[in-house]
Simulated assay, not measured.
Amino acid sequence: MTRNFQTVPVVDIAGLGSPDPADRQAVADALGRAAREAGFLYVAGHGLDPVLITDLLAAAQRYFAQPMEAKLQSYIGRSTNHSGYVPEGEEVFPGGKIDRKEAYDIGLDLPAGDDRAPMMGPNLWPDDEGFRAAAAAYYQAVSALARRLFGGFALALGLPRDAFEAHLTCPPSQLRVIHYPFDPHAEPDQQGIGAHTDYEFFTLLHGTAAGLEVMNGEGRWIDCPPTPGAFVVNIGDMLEAWTNGEFVATSHRVRKVGEERYSFPFFATCDYWTIVEPHPAFVSDERPARYPRLVSGDHLLAQTIATFSYLKDLREAASLTPVFGQEAKVI
């Protein structure tokens, strides 16, 4: 499979809710083709209320317009579960490049004292009830959509629709509210986010402006602009490993950030202690396992420790190291 796509495919997923198994399978087959041939797709027909997006955008604009001193009251380094404000320069990806953005990270909001796994617990919220309400409502709705897509991807792989359900009891999926500020002096090749693959199983993304690019099998960058009424979905490291490369985690980046842009990626994953290794359905003598056995949450934790400055002490002490991802990978 060459994967030399020139445009990002679109899949209407309304049929995933049909009582007719044939309708559900038709959608799943389309999801599977996109996941195999591009690793990136637009999903339409998802049924989410657009008010969820407009409310979150308004809350984000209000929050990021504050002085830095106010935003740092919710600095991520003050949290117990990797949530809160991420200033520009906090994230340093391999190669030492600093992305031109700021963000607010939100996880599954659990009660204080719930320490079932690293980086899980109560979110650190800003002193803005409107922001908390908008972000929590969006997180809940997109979580439900992610669960539907897990079912669709399972069918696409020839597995039972509920194949992932046992691993979705308390997943540490993360929502990032990202702001790319207006920069009239941005160079044409200046990055907003450097080339990388996503750590988790898949990502659901809404963005307000162009800038996202996807690398195809020729090593060319393909534009992936916002499409009204659709989310961008891309395959992550964990689903690539689970399927032994049947689905591909495609490298992507955000280019020149001259235009102000907001982006809301939701990184859908399985429970922290989920063991990820190539599924037997995709392993044979002709196609041996290409990926190591790992713990889903440990992979996420290792990548996070390697990236965030406030975790540098953990980086020096931890035995966890990233397994793969975070590179411009030609598929």
Rank of each mutant, 00 (worst) to 15 (best):
L159M: 15
D162C: 09
P188H: 12
R255S: 12
A154F: 11
F247K: 01
Q191E: 14
F182P: 14
N123F: 04
E218N: 11
D128G: 03
M120K: 05
P118F: 06
P171M: 00
H167T: 04
G217N: 08
Q190V: 03
E165N: 13
P226V: 10
L145F: 01
P160W: 09
T197N: 09
A230S: 11
L239E: 00
L205Y: 02
E187Y: 12
P126K: 07
P228G: 07
D127I: 01
E187S: 15
H252Y: 12
F153C: 08
L149S: 12
N244D: 09
T197K: 06
R116T: 13
A154Y: 08
K256H: 13
E213Y: 02
V232F: 03
L155K: 13
A241Y: 02
A117S: 12
L145R: 01
L155A: 10
C170H: 11
C170L: 15
G194Y: 08
F164E: 01
A135R: 11
I193G: 09
P188W: 09
P171D: 01
A135G: 09
D237C: 11
A144L: 12
D223Y: 02
N244S: 14
E246P: 03
L159P: 15
T208E: 04
R147D: 03
L157R: 13
F231C: 04
T197M: 08
R132D: 03
C170E: 13
L157H: 14
A230V: 00
M119I: 14
W221C: 05
I193N: 05
F202Y: 03
S143I: 02
G158A: 10
T197D: 07
G217R: 05
Q140N: 13
A141E: 11
G236T: 12
M215K: 02
G192P: 02
A230M: 03
I235L: 09
M238S: 05
L204R: 03
D223E: 14
F247H: 10
E259Y: 07
E246A: 04
A146C: 06
P181T: 06
D198L: 03
G192V: 03
L159S: 14
E240N: 06
G258H: 00
A209L: 05
E200Q: 13
T208C: 08
P171C: 03
P225S: 06
P225D: 09
I178H: 05
Q140P: 03
D115I: 06
A210D: 14
A163Y: 14
G211T: 07
H185P: 06
A135V: 13
D223L: 05
G229E: 01
Q190A: 12
R220I: 07
P172W: 04
F150A: 10
A166P: 03
R116G: 11
G211Q: 08
T197G: 07
D198F: 01
V257H: 07
A166F: 00
F164Y: 10
I235Y: 07
V232G: 01
F201M: 15
T169P: 10
E213V: 15
G121S: 10
R147H: 13
P226D: 04
V232P: 00
R116F: 12
G207V: 02
M215D: 00
P171N: 01
E246T: 11
G152N: 12
Y139D: 00
A186Q: 10
A146L: 00
V248Q: 02
E246C: 08
F201E: 02
G152C: 07
V257K: 07
I222C: 02
G194L: 08
V142A: 04
T208M: 10
D128Q: 11
F247V: 04
